[in-house]
């Protein structure tokens, strides 16, 4: 258990710092290399400038099993544009000169596995990446094989839970986590459902009452101010992915401020 309580002399991970702020957090996912190969740094800088609290940088994969059509299409295009793990790291190498909010890489396990998990984590640490979300790396495999590597490089690994996840397993995931828990709002792929019903609010309340040590951030089904407000009533923050990728598809990257202010209702 003590490996889970990472209290060492190094300064606190940016994710943990952010989670301590007294506000509801907005996290945005985008697919790196989309719509154009060199948009990565611009998108990150714009998101921060417009008040986003945390960013998930999507490392595209040929076979994204947990994603719906929007993120699949953006991943396919990003790969066509020439995005690779190597290219992404190159694009991000100076990102910490201009950006200070937490940055998380979200991607599937195979590209990381091919890069070498240790080398991948080391590179993330050098760049200033704070955490990883890897939907198809199961909790037990992570715990057994990779947790020490992640921790050595100061990376927080974020796990998902769904309405079908048992209480026992949620407690287990909570015990392994040291940042936040990614609370998937409904059993679905990304972008499949919009909005929340009775079932979701009951689920959010159930998790809220479990007194977990890690705060929860809701993802899947959040696309506008209404759903953002709903989700953050029960959780520390919310993640928007498909809706943002759709916005970029339709409007390009010059109007990111419009999208973000519509979510935060600054207008």
């Amino acid at each position: 258990m003590d490996s889970c309580l990472r209290r060492n002399d190094k300064k606190m991970n940016r994710i943990n710092q952010k989670l301590q702020e007294d506000k509801k957090l907005l996290s945005i996912y985008f697919t790196a290399g989309y719509p154009n190969i060199n948009d990565t740094a611009t998108i990150i800088q714009d998101l921060e400038k417009n008040g986003v609290d945390m960013i998930e940088i999507g490392l595209p994969f040929s076979d994204p099993l947990a994603d719906g059509p929007t993120i699949q299409a953006s991943s396919t295009q990003a790969l066509k544009n020439g995005m690779t793990t190597e290219v992404l790291f190159e694009q991000l190498k100076d990102i910490r000169k201009s950006v200070s909010i937490p940055l998380i890489i979200m991607g599937y396990f195979n590209p990381m596995f091919q890069y070498g998990v240790d080398a991948f984590c080391k590179k993330c640490q050098e760049i200033g990446i704070d955490g990883l979300i890897i939907p198809d790396l199961p909790v037990d495999v992570y715990h057994e094989k990779y947790q020490t590597i992640f921790e050595k490089h100061g990376l927080i690994n974020v796990f998902l839970i769904t309405p079908q996840t048992s209480d026992e397993r949620i407690h287990y995931i909570d015990s392994i986590s040291n940042g936040f828990i990614y609370m998937v709002s409904s059993a679905s792929t990304t972008g499949a459902k919009v909005g929340f019903g009775e079932e979701q609010t009951q689920y959010f309340e159930r998790i809220g009452n479990m007194n977990l040590k890690n705060p929860q951030i809701v993802g899947f089904g959040i696309s506008n101010n209404q759903t953002f407000t709903q989700a953050t009533q029960y959780a520390k923050g919310a993640i928007i992915g498909s809706a943002f990728v759709k916005h970029v598809t339709n409007e390009g990257i010059s109007n990111i401020n419009h999208f973000i202010s519509s979510i935060l209702n600054h207008e």
Partner: peptide, 11 residues
Amino acid sequence: GGAYIPEMLYP
């Protein structure tokens, strides 16, 4: 082998 699946498929 193993089961490298997203949490959504775990149950």
